[in-house]
Design a protein around this nucleic acid. Structure first.
Lengths: 338, 338
DNA sequence: CTGTTAGCGCCTTCAC
DNA sequence: GTGAAGGCGCTAACAG
């Protein structure tokens, strides 16, 4: 890695001259054209890349924080935009210079990614979409910088999350109010803590209402729409389609809609569908038919994460803090009000 | 903004001691417990935030590159994820430490956002979704760091793009091969250079085939699904619905599908729909009905942008370079093969 | 037109 | 147990 020092030596000028030229102030400072082209040429030959840390240090911008946002690249990929906007919103509100780095990681491989990334150079990090395994790993850490969890809960770390049990409960109440006792859950068998809570809230509520759902009402698929389609067709073939289906995410719900359309199963007449909305509202508002859901306020959670993290970085908060936000219940065509 | 110097002064110790303690090496270096707690307390009182630039500079890690990705937050919000994955893919392939910062900006306001962001601290930037106005602004710049344009073309800047005229042509040929002469274009009246090209390719091809489309076949709406729904319903009421519709983006196409479903217009029997696919393929594969489209390879374009930018940063490339990628034609239910 | 110099905040070596 | 000093790469003020 070459520096302006190297260039200066090669060009037979001082480092100051090099700095001036490379910052485009050559004309202004009346550096001779000859010197300028020589410096540019040498910079090119040496593959010179300016060191941004040195630049920043020298120019002493008032507090600019480096923040990392860890984000798992699985089926939830689509809502990165929603979160990013929320993070950004808070950054603008704070009027602080925050350098936000997006660090994608693979589910279950937070450990590997964190080893790869130079975490010591962040003032704080936000982590989204952790699996049980990722949470376990996190528990072994005692980082010297603050960490905020996106939609997860842990005693030892700060987080912004929702009452996910309540989400499942709400959906169950909606179905029960319409006497839809033949209900099922569509979920994927992974280690995602959140989904277990949704499911539990749903199942518990059915049980408490005197209509416990049997084991075979927990339908498993993977996390793709395609998989939901397969499962739906299989259930249909086996005449096991319920009257109401609670999908863990809109990705699966879209698969259900597609499959039912192909099968000639009418939603909501033959089957009602309720889902958890993680993607942009638009995608669910104009699905055919539009999807009833509890919309997760991804943007708001992101904004709160950023705010909490900044408070932690600035030591305005010192103890692990958990903030709860509420989901928004949206009733649409796939499961209308009674 | 306080530094370890301030802490040292307050604590009555040297900056070295403070540095040791705050890096958790107090025990190892046998700093007295008393001094340690005092230092921690003062750090907290002063809201001390370590300066990451100084840390990095000192640590002599090969400096990582800082790259900004400017991304317009309009209807194309959803595909941020597709692009980010592509960018990331190339970052991993290169095995370089690259800090990717996502900078959202509003359409037509690239100028304002660039003034707000500390661009001097990036080694290079990638800009997506520029409008004519944004392009015009860019033309006035002579930045000292490389810039790569995402799906745009300019003489003075490097870019990764597609033959967008060809996209429109392909769709026209598809319709024409099925004798769908009563066709229309659904687009929004903005300054997006790309869309004009698609449209032109489409219209020119119809004209060349001896079936020129009249002015009233260029249907305008804004960029939302909701707007496409309104327009579709209006056309239906006025009995002006064509037999084939080319939508500038899947966001609009989804609106069309929703509206047609409500109106009882059957796709593709009464109306064929072809679109440009910008969102995740899944969203179009499982729309009801699934959407025929030219899928823009967002990920691949992103990856190429990153590669090109790194080559420019490292001065392996010095002249503005344009790379062309091809879209993928996907035939689905909304407009099947003849 | 170009060079000299003094740091920016932090960490590490060496000295006491 | 703690302090002094040097230097990472770069910029800006001041000299010449």
């Amino acid at each position: 890695m070459s520096t302006i020092k190297d260039i200066a030596k090669d060009a037979g000028v001082s480092i100051a001259t090099v700095s001036i030229v490379l910052n485009g102030k050559g004309k202004e400072r009346k550096i001779s054209q000859d010197t300028q082209t020589r410096i540019y040429q040498i910079a090119k030959n040496l593959n010179y890349v300016p060191n941004q840390s040195a630049k920043k240090l020298r120019s002493m911008q008032e507090d600019s924080y480096a923040v990392a946002f860890y984000w798992a690249t699985d089926f939830r990929i689509n809502y990165l935009a929603r979160i990013t906007l929320g993070l950004q919103e808070e950054m603008l509100r704070q009027k602080k210079h925050i350098h936000l780095t997006v660090v994608p990681y693979k589910v279950d491989q937070l450990k590997e990614q964190m080893a790869l990334t130079q975490n010591t150079f962040f003032n704080g990090i936000i982590i989204a979409n952790m699996s049980d395994k990722d949470l376990e790993f996190l528990d072994t850490l005692t980082p010297s910088f603050p960490i905020v969890l996106f939609n997860r809960e842990m005693d030892t770390f700060s987080s912004v999350t929702m009452d996910n049990y309540e989400v499942g409960k709400q959906v169950a109440h909606h179905f029960l109010s319409k006497n839809l006792f033949d209900a099922a859950v569509l979920t994927h068998d992974t280690t995602f803590p959140i989904m277990r809570k949704w499911m539990k809230g749903f199942l518990d509520t059915y049980a408490e209402a005197g209509h416990p759902l049997q084991e075979d009402k927990i339908i498993l698929c993977n996390t793709s729409s395609a998989s939901a389609i397969d499962v739906c067709k299989k259930l249909y073939a086996e005449k096991r389609l319920p009257k109401a289906m609670f999908c863990e995410s809109d990705v699966l719900a879209h698969g259900m809609l597609f499959a039912c359309h192909e099968l000639g199963v009418s939603i909501p007449r033959d089957l009602e569908v309720f889902t958890v909305g993680i993607n942009m509202p638009e995608l669910n508002d104009y699905a055919v038919p539009s999807l009833s859901r509890i919309d997760i306020p991804m943007g708001a959670i992101g904004a709160q994460c950023m705010r909490l993290l900044i408070d932690l970085i600035e030591k305005k908060i010192t103890h692990p803090t958990t903030i709860y936000l509420e989901g928004k219940k949206i009733i649409a065509q796939s499961s209308p009000e009674k």
